[in-house]
Each structure stands twice: as structure tokens, then as C-alpha cells.
Amino acid sequence: MIALQSLLTLSAVLFVIGVCGFITRRNVLIMFMSVELMLNAANLAMLAFARHNASMDPQVVAMFVMALAAAEVAVGLAIIVAVFRRRGTVNIDDLRNLKW
């Protein structure tokens, strides 16, 4: 028997790993992957509750999250490519023109 709490703990740990990656890595690509990790952690929590409550709706929402992730990655990576072409860098700390 798998406990609901175990699933939620797994989700929380994956999420925090994603957060840590997003905050500490300089490479925009890896930051992006961290975001994917966070989205997956959220999906996992949702499915755990779906199973627990025998509900179908969270699965549909999880579907939407994946579609959203796909759209986001397509646009995000396109931005990264465009920025790299122009600036020759993928270091987040070099991309700080948007400020006062």
C-alpha cells in the first residue's frame, strides 16, 4: 500500500530541487529544465489526489499542464536561441538590460 503522504513528499522534494536549480544555475537552459521539473512535481501531486479521491478531472488538468509546458518550452527556447544569436551568451547574469 502506498501512502498519499509519500507521494506528496516526493512531489515536494522534486519541486524544491527544481527551485534550487532555478535559483542557483547560471545557464538559462538548465534554469528552464528546472522549471519543467517543478511543473512535473505539481502534476504528480495532482495525480496523487486524483487517485485518492477517485476523481477524473485532475487528469484532464494534468494534460493541460503538459500542453502548456510544451507551448512554453517552444517559445522559451526560441527566445533563448534569438538571444544567443544576438548576444552570444546563455548566462542569465549577462542578460540584465531590462532595468531602471
Binding site: I23, T24, L95, R96, W100
Partner: peptide
């Protein structure tokens, strides 16, 4: 206040966090 907007995306993320 403008010092907060320093252009470092990760600084914003930490604030957010």
C-alpha cells in the same frame, strides 16, 4: 526602490520565493 530592479532574473526569483 529602483535598486530592487537590478536586472538579475534570479534576484527577482528569490524575492518571489
Amino acid at each position: 526602490a529602483a535598486r530592487l530592479q537590478n536586472g538579475y532574473a534570479q534576484a527577482y526569483a528569490v524575492t518571489f520565493l
